[in-house]
């Protein structure tokens, strides 16, 4: 395989694995109905480290996979994750993802933005919530869960990025 294609393949595989883990494993560890969105966090990390274009493309592909696995209309999560991926790419020069607190806050922010966007799009397409209070409660729990998971996901992401850089450096 060409080394230039390696990052795309590696991140594609990581997103697929995250989506499968999320649906088969983490769905059993729901807190107040909320589960962490590992795919979203990976897209956010890609946006931060590889720019808005990559963030948007990865977000669209990852969201499509999410819709396919979740039994939803194809495009709902694709649109949400594409916008979040693009937006994080634009913020890469403003925020430095170091330590634990900043990645956690980024995870919370991404989770809240993603849920708000999803509700707006779902409402437009006629599948939005009929009662907002329980949805908002679950969104709050999901934001906390994603905030806790994001330092771990970003750490794994960075390890993969360094590995990919080493392989490309050997070229």
């Amino acid at each position: 395989m060409k080394k230039t294609l390696l990052p795309a393949v590696a991140h594609g595989a990581a997103i697929l694995l995250a989506a499968l883990i999320e649906s088969a494993w983490l769905s059993r560890l729901a807190v107040h109905g909320a589960t962490p969105d590992l795919v979203l966090l990976w897209v956010v990390a890609l946006g931060f480290y590889r720019g808005a274009e990559v963030g948007a493309i990865a977000g669209a592909a990852a969201g499509w996979l999410h819709d396919l696995l979740g039994g939803l209309a194809l495009g709902l999560h694709a649109l949400v994750k594409m916008i979040v991926g693009f937006a994080t790419g634009l913020l890469r020069r403003t925020i430095v993802l170091e330590g634990v607190v900043v990645p956690a806050l980024v995870g919370v922010g991404a989770s809240v933005s993603s849920d708000v966007l999803l509700q707006i799009i779902a409402s437009i397409t006629g599948s939005g919530p009929r009662e907002w209070a329980p949805w908002m409660e679950r969104a709050a729990w999901a934001a906390c869960y994603n905030g806790l998971m994001s330092p771990v996901v970003f750490w794994v992401f960075l390890r993969l990025e360094r590995r990919l850089q080493r392989i490309r450096g050997d070229e």
Binding site: S27, G70, L72, L118, W135
Partner: peptide, 14 residues
């Protein structure tokens, strides 16, 4: 039941 919808908002299972 082997898995549940990861999206939280819609309720499907596999």
């Amino acid at each position: 039941v082997v898995s549940r919808d990861p999206s939280r908002w819609f309720t499907t299972l596999t």
